[in-house]
Simulated assay, not measured.
Amino acid sequence: MIDTDFLCRSRLFRGFTKEEIKSLLECLNAAVKTYKKGEYIFQMGEVTEHFGMILEGKVQVVSDDYWGERQILAGFERGQLFGEAYACMEKMPLLISAVAVEETQVLMLNAHRVLQTCTSACDFHRRLVENLVGILAKKNLTLTRKIDQISKKTIRGKVLAYLSSEAGKQDSNDIIIPFNRQQLAEYLAVDRSALSAELSKMQKEGIISYKKNHFILNKDNMG
């Protein structure tokens, strides 16, 4: 059973009533799927018409190169979408993979059914497409921020740019990041050992303090 109260609070279904969501999900032939930790939801090279909304769990979008090196491109949590850009394009092979970080439940939606109106629910579709466009626009801004972060010349520069962005999103200098140390290294495209060494230096200099994925930023010592 899908929690329509939760869907009402999501960005994709903003402005819809529970009854409207039930009708829309039937029209879209939506399905709920469960994935185990480490299981691929979408895999590089595949072609998909579907995108997912996370109902429970976490998903990472990753890029694996020929030699097995992985870079984490983004992490998503409950209520967020993933895969929608590829699903909206005609027969575009995936350049990324989506992996369940833990046991994860996903609402799978067919992009073509979302974009094509029907006589029974055309107003629903119009409003849903408007919400989807808003989500895509926000993700484009997020991607721009990440490009800025990983384009910094030093590991310290990348770390500070990322933590600063997270502090802005969480409106606090006391933040929780969604990555462990290996995942953060993959996200910033740096060596894990070098990252750990730089974080240790920054903590000794009083710029940050941290324990696992909990960070506190000290602006006074960043000069």
Rank of each mutant, 00 (worst) to 15 (best):
Q43M: 10
M44Y: 00
M44I: 10
G45M: 03
G45C: 06
G45P: 09
G45R: 00
E46M: 06
E46N: 09
V47M: 06
V47P: 02
V47W: 00
T48H: 01
T48A: 04
T48D: 01
E49Y: 05
F51A: 05
G52F: 01
G52Y: 01
G52K: 00
I54H: 10
I54R: 08
I54L: 12
L55C: 11
L55R: 09
E56A: 14
G57C: 07
K58E: 15
K58Y: 12
Q60F: 09
Q60D: 14
V62P: 03
V62L: 08
S63Q: 13
D64K: 12
D64P: 00
D64F: 00
D65H: 03
W67M: 12
G68V: 03
R70Y: 01
Q71Y: 13
Q71K: 15
Q71S: 15
Q71A: 14
A74G: 12
G75D: 09
G75P: 03
E77F: 11
G79W: 02
G79H: 03
G79N: 05
Q80R: 04
L81T: 07
F82R: 02
G83S: 03
G83C: 02
E84T: 02
A85E: 12
A85G: 08
A85I: 12
A85P: 00
A87Q: 02
C88M: 15
C88L: 15
M89A: 13
M89I: 11
E90G: 04
M92L: 15
P93S: 05
P93R: 05
L94R: 08
L95C: 08
I96Q: 13
A98L: 00
A98N: 08
V99T: 08
V99R: 05
A100G: 08
A100L: 04
A100E: 05
V101C: 11
E102Q: 11
T104W: 02
V106Y: 05
V106W: 02
M108F: 05
M108R: 03
L109W: 00
L109Q: 05
N110K: 03
A111F: 02
R113P: 01
R113G: 11
V114T: 11
V114W: 05
L115I: 09
Q116D: 10
Q116I: 14
T117G: 14
C118I: 11
